[in-house]
Simulated assay, not measured.
Amino acid sequence: MDEFEPIRSEDGPQAPLPVGSTALETAILARLDDDKAQDIVLIDLKGKSPMADTMIIASGRSHRHVGALADHLQRTLKETGLGKVKVSGLPHCDWVLLDAGDVIVHLFRPEVRAFYNIEKIWSVESGHRVDARA
């Protein structure tokens, strides 16, 4: 698997959903895709960071969409027995962090994601950043 893979762009065609290398990654990616998350990026952290093996970053269209994405991920992971998830940022839903152990998920509203630009920390170019500069 590549270091990162943009999944869905707001303006461009939908790229195929990558197959996660673990059941946890696969469940998270499938749930985000089903819930119409935007600009999904998967970053492989193996050998780069001790905090997790994978980071998944996605955007929701609004506060409500980000909150729903987080809630659905929590429910899906609990129902499938893939682990307990620690969640931060739910009251405001600008940036919600879900820590599922080996996988960390960041859910943003697009403006907040552009402001913090955490993909840059890992040298990841996502589709919406390239389009925004054009």
Score class of each variant (00 low, 15 high):
110 P>M: 02
34 D>A: 12
87 V>G: 09
27 A>I: 05
11 D>Q: 11
89 G>A: 07
43 I>C: 07
54 T>H: 04
65 H>V: 07
114 A>M: 12
41 V>F: 01
86 K>F: 04
84 K>D: 14
104 I>C: 10
5 E>Y: 08
79 E>P: 09
24 L>F: 02
131 D>C: 01
75 R>N: 10
62 S>N: 04
31 R>H: 03
34 D>L: 03
104 I>P: 13
109 R>S: 13
82 L>A: 10
121 I>E: 01
50 P>N: 01
86 K>N: 11
124 V>I: 14
123 S>H: 12
13 P>W: 00
1 M>N: 11
19 V>R: 15
25 E>L: 03
8 R>W: 01
47 G>N: 09
4 F>K: 13
124 V>K: 08
67 G>A: 05
77 L>N: 05
91 P>E: 02
96 V>R: 02
20 G>V: 06
100 A>C: 09
132 A>H: 07
67 G>D: 07
72 H>M: 01
60 G>R: 03
112 V>M: 10
131 D>M: 03
120 K>C: 03
129 R>T: 13
81 G>N: 05
11 D>R: 13
124 V>G: 15
60 G>S: 12
73 L>H: 00
35 D>N: 14
133 R>D: 14
52 A>S: 10
34 D>G: 00
16 P>K: 02
47 G>T: 05
133 R>N: 13
64 R>W: 00
122 W>A: 04
66 V>P: 13
63 H>E: 06
15 A>R: 14
131 D>I: 12
57 I>N: 08
85 V>H: 09
60 G>F: 00
7 I>E: 02
109 R>C: 04
94 D>H: 11
109 R>M: 14
17 L>Q: 08
104 I>Y: 08
57 I>T: 09
6 P>A: 01
41 V>A: 12
112 V>T: 13
105 V>N: 03
26 T>C: 04
118 I>W: 04
91 P>G: 06
21 S>A: 15
68 A>P: 10
115 F>P: 05
8 R>S: 15
4 F>N: 15
128 H>M: 08
28 I>V: 13
88 S>W: 03
57 I>M: 09
14 Q>W: 01
34 D>Q: 13
128 H>D: 11
92 H>R: 14
96 V>M: 08
68 A>R: 02
33 D>S: 15
54 T>L: 04
